[in-house]
Design a protein around this nucleic acid. Structure first.
Lengths: 206, 206
DNA sequence: GCTGATCTCCACCTTAAGGTGGAGATCAAC
DNA sequence: GTTGATCTCCACCTTAAGGTGGAGATCAGC
C-alpha cells in the first residue's frame, strides 16, 4: 500500500482527492492537512510515502512546508499540486526538492500515475510545465545576473520609488543609485525604469 | 429538490463538490462543465436552479459565462466559487449579477447554506469578502475617475511604453499623451509613470 | 600578491518626463 | 443653445532620468 498525505487549504479539493485516490486499491490516505505547519507535523508523526502538497496556503505556505519536510527527511517524496504554472512558483519548488509538479487541472488518472512513479523514485512533471520552463530558466538567468545590491534597488524601484527615495532608503548617494539602475537596465536589456518595474513585478522581485 | 450545475476546470474540485453536495438530501447535481462555453450550453439545456461557477477557466472564463447566462435568463441564480478574493475579480462578478461569492476555502456546510439561500432569492457573500470590499470600492473609484482614453494610455504605460511609443500606438501626438499621463497621475494621486505602472498592474488594467 | 567582482561616488551631458496654463473640436445631456 | 466632459494639441519651463567614462575601496578566490 502507498500511504499518502494530502495537503490543501480547500476542504473541497481534499475531499475530491480522497474520493479519487481511494478508488485505487493500492492507495491509502493516511492524513490531511490544511496548511504548511499542519503538514510538517503530520509528516513527522505519520511518515507517509508520498505528500500531495498545495502551495497557496495560510498562514504557512507550501514551499515553506516542503523545505521543512525535506530538512527533516531527505528522502521525503513530495508532489506539488497547484494552480500556478509560472516559473516564479515552479523553480523554487523544484530547487527545494519536489519530486513532482502537477497543475490542478490534471485528471485523476495522471495524478495516480504520478504518485506511483514518485514512490519508486521517478520524478513526474506536468507536460505544459516543461514548455514554460525553458522560457522561465532563460528569464531567470537574467535576474541572476544582478548583484544583491542591484536586486535591492530593483525591488524598491518596482514599488514606485524615485532614485532619491531609493538612495535615502538604502542610505547611499543618488549617484550610486543611478549607477545601479543603469546597470540593471543594461543587464536586463530594458530601456527605462518603468519597464524595469514591470519586469520586476512579473518576476516576483521583492 | 435543488438542481445544481457545477462549473470548474479542476476535475478534482468537481468530484469533491459532488461528494459533498450529494450528501445533502435535497440537492441534485444535474451536470458539470469544465469551462465557460460548456457552462452556458449546459445551462441552456438543463435550466438548473443554481450554478456553482469558478472564474479561472480556459478558454472561456467564468465571468464571460456568467454574463451570457444572465443574458439568456435574467433570473439565473449563480454562485461564484473561486480562489480570488481581490476586488478586481469580485466587483465585475457582482456587477454581472452573481447572487453569491464564496472562496474555495469555505467549508461544505457554508456552501450548502449558500445554495439554499440563493435558491430562495437571498444573496450570500463571503464574510472575508466584505472586508476587502470597502477598500476595493475606494480603489476602484480612483480607476473609474479615468476616462476611456486615459485607461488606454495607462494600459500601454504599464507595458513599459514611452510617451512617444504610446503616441504612435494610439496614433495621436506625444503632447496629447503627456496631457493624459499628467491627468492620470493627478487623478490617481501618484508622482510618476513608474508608480502608475505598478498601480495599473496591481489593479489589473489591461 | 594579483585579479575580478562588487559597491560606492563623481562630472558631464542629453533627453524624456511632467507641471502649468492655455485652446479648439466634438458630443451628449439638460 | 448652453453646459460639461472628453479628446486633441500647443508653448514654456523645470527636473528627474539615464548614458558615458571615469575612480577608489573592499573582499573573495586563485
Amino acid at each position: 500500500m502507498i500511504r499518502i498525505l494530502l495537503v490543501d487549504d480547500h476542504e473541497i479539493v481534499r475531499k475530491g482527492l480522497q474520493v479519487f485516490l481511494n478508488l485505487q486499491e493500492d492507495f491509502l490516505i493516511i492524513g490531511e492537512a490544511k496548511d504548511g505547519q499542519e503538514a510538517v507535523e503530520r509528516y513527522r508523526q505519520q511518515k507517509p510515502d508520498v505528500v500531495l502538497l498545495d502551495l497557496q496556503m495560510e498562514p504557512v505556505d507550501g514551499l515553506t512546508a516542503l523545505r521543512q519536510i525535506k530538512e527533516m527527511d531527505e528522502q521525503a517524496k513530495v508532489i506539488v499540486l497547484t494552480s500556478f504554472l509560472d516559473p516564479t512558483h515552479v523553480l523554487p519548488a523544484v530547487e527545494s526538492g519536489a519530486m513532482g509538479y502537477l497543475v490542478k487541472t490534471t485528471d485523476a488518472q495522471a495524478i495516480a500515475l504520478a504518485i506511483r512513479n514518485v514512490v519508486v523514485g521517478k520524478s513526474m512533471f506536468d507536460a505544459e510545465l516543461m514548455q514554460s520552463m525553458a522560457k522561465g530558466i532563460r528569464e531567470r538567468a537574467d535576474l541572476q545576473d544582478l548583484t544583491p545590491r542591484e536586486l535591492d534597488v530593483l525591488g524598491l524601484l518596482a514599488k514606485g520609488l524615485s532614485n532619491q527615495e531609493i538612495a535615502d532608503t538604502l542610505v547611499i548617494g543618488i549617484k550610486t543609485v543611478k549607477t545601479h539602475v543603469s546597470n540593471i537596465l543594461a543587464k536586463l536589456g530594458l530601456q527605462d525604469r518603468t519597464q524595469a518595474a514591470v519586469y520586476a513585478i512579473e518576476h516576483g522581485v521583492k
